[in-house]
Amino acid sequence: MAAPVSAGTRLQPQPLDPPARLRWYGVVVVALAFVPFVAPADVAATATRILALALLAVSLDLLVGVGGMPSLGQAAPFGVGVYAAGLTARELTPFAPVQVLVAVAAGALLSALLGWLVVRSRGTYLLMLSLALAELVHTLAGKWDALTGGTNGLVGVPALTFAPGGEPVRLAGLVYWWVLAVAVVGFLVVVVVSRSAFGRSLRGIRDNEARMSSLGYSTFRVKYTAFVISGAVAGLAGALWMAQTRFASPEDLGFHVSAFALLAVVIGGRGSLWGAVLGAALVGVIRDEFGPQLGGRGPLLLGIAFIAAVYLLPHGFAGLRLRRARTQGHP
């Protein structure tokens, strides 16, 4: 579907038509699927965790980039998903799909509770309110010894199985493939939501909430629905994190997880979804790979990366195409 090229369209990035976009997604997924063949097990394990964090960033991008709700509390549904998946595996069944479903439900339920309050605020207030509520959940996880194991964390989580009562899957590469497959599904869910009529309503609210209201929309309903969907996907990301780490601690609900996700969204470019994946990959590699080599100065490097991103890529990775279009000039 080629848009007519006129003065107004010239500086805009021309969106890829859907088949071309799908081809690109396919190429990236196939390339990612080859990681366990070429990388050692510890790299595959790191890549698994980065996939989980990338899905967390994508879930946050639905709120921040598409919906204009800058949440600093995305660790709450994520962490609850981590615990829900771990507890399900330990107490109920290590059958992987069950963990995923329980974590999705837990993330959605928590967001349904918190969102009732959070989406009534805007801008900086939403940022602070979401942070405060996430910190409450964080503290609760540290205190509720009977359920969460308190500050010792949730231990003794068995390896996941691909069949009820089947063999525990211990190979890092297999876990990686499982996480990749589920993360792709989660990513596509967010893409579908973003491209739906509902997604358009959400963008309308991001641009001009008052006008949406005067067009007859209940903006609360739109924002609340988006918040719950985002929480469900964050819970899913939590289950994927648990699939690799098999350990949960209150720190999975901590401020730094929320900040990490928001940083990934900003570096990747708000609202583009795939930009959030790239942002999470960059932030994850810096934090987990280079950070330890620098003797715990990972956050410093992250800070520098953040400043560089804001100056060099004001629209994140997703803005690169726009900049290229601008410097080359369209026909």
Partner: peptide, 13 residues
């Protein structure tokens, strides 16, 4: 909004 699709997630925009 008028056609009732404003909250539809399975309808593509």
């Amino acid at each position: 909004r008028l056609t009732g699709h404003g909250l539809r997630i399975r309808t593509r925009a």
